[in-house]
C-alpha cells in the first residue's frame, strides 16, 4: 500500500509577483496515475516542482504519510531526459543510488532497466540513444531508488507521436507493476485519458483546480488499453475541454 499524499493550501509566488499557483489542496490515496492537465501558465509545472523540493512553496504543506515529503521519497522525470552525458545508461540509472552498497545498487539498477526494457543498452552512452530510449533511462533513473511518489513533468512532450505512444505503454506498465503514486503532468488530454485513473484540470494563473474527475476503474468502457474512439472516452474528453476552456463569455456579450 502506498502512503497518502496530502496537499493543503499549497501556494507559490515568485518574489513580490502575484502567485502563480494556489492555494491548492488535494489528496492522493493509493497507486495508479493521476494526470494533471492545464494550459501553459496554469502552474502545473510549478506544482510538481514544489512537491519535488526544487521550489519552496510560499505557503501550504505537502505531506506524504503524514510527514513532510523527503527528496528520497520522490522520483522526478523532466520534460527532457537530462542524462549525464559522461555516464553510461547503467551509471545514469544508478545516479540516485550512491547511498546503497554495491550489490544492492546493481540489483536496483537491473530491476529498473528491466522494468522499462533497457537491459540490452546498459553500457551505452547517452549520445548513442534515441530520444525515446533516453527518456526511458530517465524514467528508470527516477524509479531505481523505489520512490513512493513519481512525478512526471510532461515527459512525453518532446517525443514523436509513435515513440510517445510506446512510452505511454511503458508508463502504464510501471503503474501496473510497482507500488507507486504517479503524478503525470501533460497538456495532452488524450494522453491523460489513456493513462490516468484520475484527471485534474488546473486553470490559472494562479493555478487552481477547476475539475477533478475519477475515472471509473471498474467500468469496462475504461479498461486498459483504453479505446480512444469509444463514446465514454469522447464524452470524458469533452468534459476536460470544457474545463480547460471556459465558455467565451466576452464574445457572447
Amino acid at each position: 500500500m502506498t502512503r497518502r499524499l496530502d496537499i493543503s493550501d499549497l501556494t507559490k509566488a515568485f518574489g513580490a509577483a502575484p502567485p502563480v499557483l494556489g492555494p491548492l489542496s488535494l489528496t492522493l490515496d493509493g497507486e495508479g496515475i493521476t494526470a494533471i492537465i492545464g494550459r501553459s501558465g496554469s502552474g502545473k509545472s510549478t506544482f510538481l516542482r514544489c512537491l519535488s523540493g526544487l521550489e519552496t512553496p510560499t505557503r501550504g504543506t505537502a505531506m506524504l504519510g503524514g510527514k513532510p515529503i523527503r527528496p528520497a521519497e520522490v522520483g522526478f522525470v523532466f520534460q527532457e531526459p537530462r542524462l549525464m552525458p559522461w555516464l553510461s545508461v547503467r551509471r545514469n540509472i544508478a545516479f540516485g543510488l550512491s547511498h546503497l552498497p554495491k550489490p544492492e545498487r546493481a540489483r536496483a539498477v537491473e530491476a529498473a532497466m528491466a522494468l522499462v526494457g533497457l537491459s540490452a543498452a546498459a553500457d551505452y552512452l547517452p549520445k548513442q540513444l534515441s530520444g525515446g530510449m533516453a527518456q526511458r533511462v530517465a524514467l528508470a533513473r527516477a524509479l531505481a531508488p523505489r520512490p513512493d511518489l513519481l512525478l512526471l513533468d510532461e515527459p512525453l512532450s518532446a517525443l514523436d507521436p509513435l515513440t510517445r505512444e510506446r512510452m505511454q505503454d511503458h508508463i502504464l506498465h510501471v503503474a501496473q507493476h510497482i507500488r507507486v503514486t504517479i503524478l503525470l503532468i501533460t497538456h495532452d488530454m488524450d494522453e491523460a485519458l489513456a493513462l490516468a485513473n484520475r484527471v485534474i484540470v488546473l486553470r490559472g494563473p494562479p493555478g487552481r483546480i477547476v475539475l477533478d474527475v475519477t475515472i471509473p476503474e471498474h467500468d469496462p468502457a475504461y479498461a486498459f488499453p483504453r479505446d480512444r474512439t469509444s463514446a465514454a472516452f469522447q464524452a470524458m474528453r469533452r468534459r476536460l475541454i470544457d474545463a480547460l476552456e471556459p465558455a467565451p463569455v466576452a464574445l457572447a456579450r
Binding site: S52, G53, L54, R70, P71, A72, V74, F76, F78, E80, R82, M84, W86, F95, G96, S98, P145
Partner: peptide
C-alpha cells in the same frame, strides 16, 4: 537542468560539484 537532476536526488553542494559540475 543537470544541476536540478542532482537536486531532486538530494545532492548537497559537494556532491553536486563532484558528480555533476566537475565532469560537465
Amino acid at each position: 537542468k543537470l544541476i536540478e537532476v542532482g537536486r531532486v536526488h538530494d545532492y548537497g553542494k559537494l556532491r553536486l560539484m563532484l558528480r555533476i559540475q566537475l565532469p560537465a
